[in-house]
Design a protein around this nucleic acid. Structure first.
Lengths: 334, 334
DNA sequence: CTGTTAGCGCGTTCAG
DNA sequence: CTGAACGCGCTAACAG
């Protein structure tokens, strides 16, 4: 690979001049500029970004930490982040936390030592204290899907409580009185908030929360499926199920269908997240829209604004959920 | 951030010695080793990987280029690659080609200039010539989902022809005589190969390929949906549809269901890729397994072996598809 | 076993 | 407007 040195020789100028034209910094005469460009062209020169980073203390790359790289939730998030940053000619270094404390921490530190200009972090496990300290550090950090006291301005998150409220209110307004709830893992803040919303909705209707109609799942299909089995086993009747995300709803509905129940005729369902389902699935799930892509977009915008001084972009911290009514809820049978 | 220099001062040794203990290279006495470790601990020292890269000409990161970051196909691929590499303490820099020639090329060049030790490339658009040249370059490259003449040893790919054969043979063996085919975009080799398999299966049964039963889609749900509309419009009867991937099958089935057709009673379907569908979808799609994760694993292994001299891993270039029989095919109605 | 000395490729003063 | 010189933080010979 040709270096800046080779270019300077060929162009008959100094290293510094080449650097200037490459970075558009400082004045260079039309003529020398052209000479340099020709030389670069001829040598197929591409600046070595490692060396650039070391010298300028800026890597033009931002680190992204998510818990998984795939799936209907994180996939679109990452796509959005990559798109925005890429459009600004910044690049993305990705690491997965795999829902493991050690790996999550390790990933953060790697991204840091890798010289990222900023971090976008979807932390599942890392403690508030750790994150607070992280945000105090030299490398700017945005947190996504989480809000932590004291660093609210670094958090991009959804109003999960409101979401939970919308979901449960919806089934309640259809006349359901006995509604089960399949929750996400309660060590996660968003799972707790959604549950809280559910409880509030219950309260609004003068109903009380019943532990026997509650199951703590894992945000995955399996958890929904298993939760449904458990709920049926307990024998406490219910006519609707609110699930803390669409994937668990999917698993839960699967079990019902297997047992010959009709959805929504026999039992209603509402999910959360509004992930894309295949076109031919039936019934279409009523759910709460989680604007995860918008949030990814925002996080990327924040980085552009704060780190790369792009003042063109707008920013907001908190996103509001919306109910997406489809076919999986109807009034309970008389 | 503390530098290696700070550590050497605090530990009362030289830079070189610190470097030695950090990298476990060369002998260092127990005692000095401990002193250094203590100093590192105390300063919270983390080596600056940018500087390491520049000095050692090795970045411990491998670039991955895929066309998209999300979706049921690329998601699992990336997850697998990241897992394998991460386990070997290597890191992953990801770029998306977005099915655009310029972006794909740009992404490759970025990854190259970013000092990646190797590239794993899923090239949709880049020409064979470009890829051949790329593989001649200094940075080792593995191609995934593609095989290119002259650089077969760099390619990890599926026997798509065999896959197409399996899919079509399956419906043919169920007695279908009039089978439609919804193809992927024919500028892609894998789409062409799968189609070729379909044609061979037809020939085996003494049937001839009928252009009126052919539609060139886009590998997405929309393409399947639209393809189905077109096929119906043409009025040429058929009792089964072979789709070049599951997503198009999904779209195509959706249209049938909308029109009140039953699958597989009225019309049979077979897909390709075996992507994960939600648990409660019905009918379950009969398809051909595309071991995309295994291929990702292999590509990562190749890098480990060739670039990082890990001889523990095995490697194979070509993967064989397998038919996954589920519920979407049954004999045509009398 | 340990310290010294060159660079790695580039950005950035500071003189001219 | 241009060039010389230094340094980013670290690795890799080469001497001791």
């Amino acid at each position: 690979m040709a270096t800046i040195y080779d270019v300077s020789i060929l162009a008959g100028v100094s290293l510094a001049t080449v650097s200037r034209v490459v970075n558009n910094t400082g004045k260079v005469s039309e003529k020398t500029c052209k000479k340099v460009h020709d030389a670069m062209e001829q040598l197929g020169y591409r600046p070595n970004s490692i060396a650039q980073s070391l010298a300028s203390n800026r890597s033009n790359s931002v680190g992204v930490l998510v818990s998984q790289l795939d799936g209907p939730f994180y996939g679109p998030l990452m796509r959005e982040i990559e798109s925005v940053l890429r459009a600004a000619n910044k690049h993305v270094i990705i690491a997965a936390g795999h829902s493991d404390a050690a790996q999550e921490k390790d990933a953060v530190e790697f991204l840091l030592s890798r010289g990222c200009d900023a971090l976008i972090v979807d932390a599942e496990i890392l403690s508030n204290e750790y994150l607070q300290k992280l945000c105090k550090g030299k490398t700017p950090v945005v947190l996504i899907n989480r809000h932590v006291d004291g660093i609210e301005d670094r958090c991009v998150h959804l109003n999960n409580l409101e979401g939970g409220l919308l979901a449960s209110r919806h089934v309640l307004e259809h006349g359901h009185q006995q509604v089960a709830y399949i929750s996400g893992p309660l060590f996660k803040l968003d799972a707790r908030e959604r549950l809280e919303g559910h409880k509030q909705a219950l309260t609004e209707k003068g109903l009380t929360f019943d532990e026997r109609l509650f199951f703590e799942g894992d945000f995955r299909e399996e958890g929904g499926y298993e939760g449904m089995e458990v709920l049926f086993e307990r024998g406490q009747p219910f006519t609707a199920v609110v699930c803390a995300n669409d994937q668990m709803a999917s698993g839960a509905i699967a079990l019902c269908l297997e047992r010959g129940l009709q959805v929504p005729q026999d039992i209603s369902f509402v999910g959360f997240d509004n992930i894309p389902f295949p076109r031919y699935i039936s019934p279409k799930l009523t759910t709460v829209c989680n604007p995860i892509q918008d949030m990814g977009h925002m996080a990327a915008n924040w980085v552009l604004k704060e780190v790369y001084d792009n003042r063109e972009v707008n920013f907001s911290h908190r996103f509001e959920p919306e109910l997406v009514v489809r076919e999986s809820v109807q009034p309970p049978k008389a």
